[in-house]
Design a protein around this nucleic acid. Structure first.
Lengths: 266, 266
DNA sequence: TCGAGCTGTGAAAATCCTGTGAAAGCAGGA
DNA sequence: TCCTGCTTTCACAGGATTTTCACAGCTCGA
């Protein structure tokens, strides 16, 4: 639902280093991914970047600026293209917009406004094509399909409910990171966790049960005592792994400070 | 690039009669349908107009301008909203754009540029809509004919009403994907679904009834509890019991036309 | 080793969601 | 104007899901 706050992948084609730097600072603060690219980068490379938006000053494009813009807009209909340049005539702006450019702003231009316009354009683009979701994510034997709100192991569904799925998806997207309960609750339930609420634990159990049932021999969700949970697929094969992935830790050297601070990983 | 030239339905909320008149002349020449509306028109009426774009000068909205814009943008996510007004601060523009406004231009403004920007904003929805669809779409025993706004099973019509047809078509085009109610409503009804609205469910039932009547032995629409619906034709015959379509549900009484309450697939 | 504090678990209770039938509201045609 | 077919709204029942609870098992620092 939240059309905003999504992280935006932006490429900038501009040689106005002052503007670019200021903008980069702000976009970074906002959690966007910004990349500065040279002038004549072929559209194919833009495709590979999986961008949401492209900010371009056509003066650095030289003679073939119009042709380049047209090619980019034609090849990447899902890309938001924003021109940001100095003085221009109405005719130029109209030509650009008719070519496929989504917005045209004039320098000097406040970086905050540039960002707001980039957001607006990306928002619109996204709405136009709600499908085209990313492909299924695969972790170990597990396959998470966002387009079906479901996870599968070798083709068979885990029968996750909506909450279970969202929790799993959240954990998996943060693969390797420990997520605190409060953070998990906040993002899956959408509001702050009440003190003493055990919902997260309960759903973790349900997930583990369903994962174990369909994918035994793998550990996906690890508990970090006093902290939260971490998703990381591990084959927990008794024979192949031998000693140290088994649940009962043989020893954890309580004498010296163990390298792992307070993380009894299960 | 001729995605344009499509006629655009535009509403204008502005009392600058000079600008409005000039714009009207040009849009008419371009074959658009333009309508001048009074200030405080409720969003519901905008819905009924089936607009592509709305051009508004917030100074005629008075105090509640921001709230009005927010409401309109929230209710009609597919509507292109362009603000066109006199002097404004960066902060105002940013606020508007973040609220959901798609473009913000400053008067005095050349009508040609205004039109180009309106086109740019409306461009989104008409991509990949080659009305002359390739041929009828066939799913299982079902045949969907976009050219007739109707679906058939072995030649006989399902007698779908317009809404029923649009719903079925939407689901079928997204075959395999789960669509959330809000998304369905948004795309079939054209505006945001009110909280608690059950229209989608009711129409799903009607579709299921008509599908069952003409094509018994097939399940087309699957419910995803807490999420929405998914279209996927499945022969629901006892023998064809595929491995992964029917999860672990024992498939109660496959005898005859057991009024099977629409298999709740998660 | 002990105990306070956390986490895992099973099940009951509370809540939410969907299917459904029917009535009410609407729009267009006779 | 009335009729007719379509759409929206309503209320209820039966399930499915989520939340809550009490207790058992673990972890970690003292």
């Amino acid at each position: 639902m939240n059309t905003q706050s999504q992280t935006i992948r932006l490429a900038v084609i501009d040689d106005d280093s002052g503007f670019v730097t200021v903008l980069a600072k702000r976009t970074e603060a906002a959690g966007w991914q910004q990349r500065q690219v040279a002038s004549a980068i072929p559209p194919e490379e833009l495709v590979a970047m999986k961008l949401n938006a492209l900010l371009v000053d056509p003066t650095v494009l030289g003679e073939d600026g119009w042709a380049y813009l047209e090619r980019v807009c034609g090849m990447l209909p899902d890309l938001g293209v924003i021109v940001c340049t100095g003085r221009s005539t109405v005719a130029q702006r109209v030509r650009g917009l008719r070519l496929g450019v989504d917005d045209w702003l004039t320098k000097p231009c406040h970086p905050e406004e540039a960002m707001a316009r980039i957001e607006a354009v990306s928002r619109r683009r996204r709405r136009g094509r709600p499908e085209a979701e990313a492909g299924p994510l695969v972790y170990g034997e597990l396959e998470i399909r966002a387009d079906r709100f479901q996870a599968y192991v070798s083709g068979s569904s885990l029968d996750l409910t909506r909450r279970e799925f969202e929790l799993l998806q959240l954990l998996a997207e943060a693969k390797g990171q420990v997520l605190e309960r409060e953070a998990i609750y906040q993002r899956v339930w959408g509001y702050a966790m009440a003190h003493g609420d055990r919902s997260v634990d309960v759903f973790i159990r349900k997930l583990r049960q369903k994962l174990e049932k369909r994918s035994p021999g793998w550990n996906y969700i690890h508990t970090h005592f006093g902290v939260g949970y971490r998703f990381d697929p591990e084959a927990s094969d008794p024979e192949s792994a031998g000693a140290f992935t088994t649940s009962l830790h043989p020893r954890h050297t309580p004498v010296t400070s163990s390298p792992e601070p307070a993380a009894t990983v299960r």
